[in-house]
Computed example of a mutant assay.
Amino acid sequence: MADRDKVVNVSVAQDITVEGPNSENSMVITFSRKYNYEGEEYGQVDLSGLEDMTATDMIAANKILEKSGSFSFLPEMSLEYACIISARATKMPLEFFQRLHPRDAIKVKNKVTSFFYGEG
Rank of each mutant, 00 (worst) to 15 (best):
A2C: 06
R4P: 05
N9H: 11
V10T: 13
V10E: 11
A13P: 10
I16S: 05
I16R: 12
T17V: 15
G20Q: 00
S26T: 05
S26G: 03
M27S: 02
V28R: 12
V28D: 09
V28E: 12
T30W: 02
E38N: 11
E38W: 04
G39Y: 14
G39L: 03
E40I: 08
G43C: 09
L47D: 09
L47F: 03
S48H: 10
G49M: 06
G49R: 11
L50T: 08
D52W: 14
T54A: 01
A55V: 09
A60Y: 09
S68Y: 13
G69M: 07
S72Q: 11
E76G: 06
E76V: 03
S78W: 09
S78Y: 08
E80G: 03
E80H: 14
A82P: 06
C83W: 01
I84V: 08
I85S: 02
I85F: 02
A87I: 00
A89F: 01
T90F: 11
K91Y: 13
K91I: 11
M92R: 05
F96C: 01
F96E: 07
P102D: 09
R103L: 01
I106R: 15
I106E: 12
K107H: 02
K107W: 04
K111L: 12
T113L: 12
F115Y: 15
F115G: 03
F115L: 05
F116R: 00
F116H: 01
Y117A: 09
Y117P: 07
Y117I: 01
E119M: 01
